[in-house]
Amino acid sequence: MSQKVILFLSALIVWSLFNWVPDPAHLLVGIFAAGMVALLLGDLVVERPHLLAHPRRYFYFFFQYIPVFLWEVLKANIDVARRVIHPNLPIHPGIVKVKTSLRSDIAITLLANSITLTPGTMSVDVDKDQAILYIHWIDVRSRDIGEASRIIVERFEKILRTIFEEGTGNEER
């Protein structure tokens, strides 16, 4: 039940942002549409609603994950621009394996997205059973799985673990 309520509220917020400033007629249609969405999708979208009740996680998400992410995106763009306009194309591409210790779906999805937008790396495939990510690296500095994991994923993994996994009771799953 709480999952449907959360989905209804978030759909209503997105709807009222889409036709800003909300007036009563639009809001009525929005309540109807968001109710339809919540009834049809139900429990599919929000999996662990008890995580949303911790203000600590919002704090980490907005003040630790977002600034690190934006800084890495800026570095990635300058790096790619430098490689593209260099006359000799300084690239040594390859696909390496890295290991991650995250388990929940949304954490792995966000980790793969962050990897794709950070310097020189792009996730190609995810093996969820063994927690292995295959990553295309534009400048391979290490072929060893541990060393590559340390360079690529460790930065985001620490932050995402505090946001999505700590204290939820499924670390040892």
């Binding site: 040594h92 390859g94 390496v96 394996k97 937008l117 190609v124 072929r143």
Partner: peptide, 27 residues
């Protein structure tokens, strides 16, 4: 990023090879 991930996966599974100067391909 999701679209890029899907294209890369599809390209690798449909057998498009990496560039000849590539270093390593664990996948």
């Amino acid at each position: 990023p999701v679209a890029a991930h899907a294209i890369a996966r599809g390209a690798h599974r449909s057998g498009i090879a990496l560039w000849s100067g590539s270093v390593v391909d664990h996948y």
